[in-house]
Design a binder for these strands. Sequence first.
DNA 1: CTTGCCTATGCAACTTGTTGCATAGCAGGA
DNA 2: TCCTGCTATGCAACAAGTTGCATAGGCAAG
Lengths: 183, 183
Amino acid sequence: MALEHAILVALLEQPASGYELARRFDRSIGRFWTATHQQIYRVLRRMETDGWVTAEQVDQEGRPDKRRWSAAPAGRAALTEWLHAPVQPEAVRHELAVKIRGAAFADPAGRAALVVEVERYRADHEALLARYLAGERRDFPDVAAPDARAALQHVVLRGGIAYERMVLAWLDDVLVTLRALDH
Amino acid sequence: MALEHAILVALLEQPASGYELARRFDRSIGRFWTATHQQIYRVLRRMETDGWVTAEQVDQEGRPDKRRWSAAPAGRAALTEWLHAPVQPEAVRHELAVKIRGAAFADPAGRAALVVEVERYRADHEALLARYLAGERRDFPDVAAPDARAALQHVVLRGGIAYERMVLAWLDDVLVTLRALDH
DNA sequence: CTTGCCTATGCAACTTGTTGCATAGCAGGA
DNA sequence: TCCTGCTATGCAACAAGTTGCATAGGCAAG
């Protein structure tokens, strides 16, 4: 039940419509929390009835009108309470690891297919790392005295960068291991 | 829909009852896929009607009888087909990252609480890393010429170890960053 | 001898997340 | 002109995962 809280953080950083939130969940926020627009709209309505967020109608020219959402005091209070609660142990779902262990029960052709798949997966993560590094250069160019918000956003981004580097190194290890099985 | 496939891999590695599977999902398999016993029992029954697994009744003395499940040929075929399919992009849900960005909107007391929470989280991951390393020493003591199954299990375990090391380094970074906000 | 824990399986209700589809106006290119 | 794509919001059906509870015998500690 943390999508509510991820939305609260996003709205505190910058009020937005459901559509804009969805796009941010596809980009920067999507690094650590994913959600579809359908889910976001549904949760926003629930949060509205709970008094966590308020909407402001924005009429637009040349494009559809929208509702700009902001975090309400009750939402801020809910966020504070949540920050004090213990972090829930994460539910790990790492499909690739299952496939790698499953490769022990595949024939050489099946393992060859997995090698191709791992290479594609590796390329995706290499591209992701490049995007993170470009974002870091763009958004955090100087090291000196950032405000709290920027410092915290930066440390989360550094986590994403460290994760991608670790994944790339591990995937190289996986590829060496897979290729060694059939020479 | 990969729980089915994780169960197939687990049963190919070693046939087991639902209860034993659940315990393995709490330990070794739980590194990359989590599931409760309720979910495992439910999915096993669906897999049975699909002909993916077969059960064998095992009468026991001094403890309840059990059903030992094995992967059937149709299950093996389904696994092979799945190995050829592209890896689905993972749905990221990293609660701690949300909390860290949320800390920008908390007062110093709230941030102090988060520091305590991150320290606890760090201790958990340090213990996890120790368990992985102990498991590695126990299960993969020699480097020379392992069979395919051991080699693949080992490379997945190395992934877990690399992940935990990365997490610990990042959490140190997080703690430094959080503490610097309020001196 | 009672309390709690382990083995072993399962039901039912609920929450969360996914997928497919719908609407509707505007902009830009072939 | 038609087709595609973007902004903007939403419904409905479904799949997946969680939580609470139930049963039932045995075993060990206090």
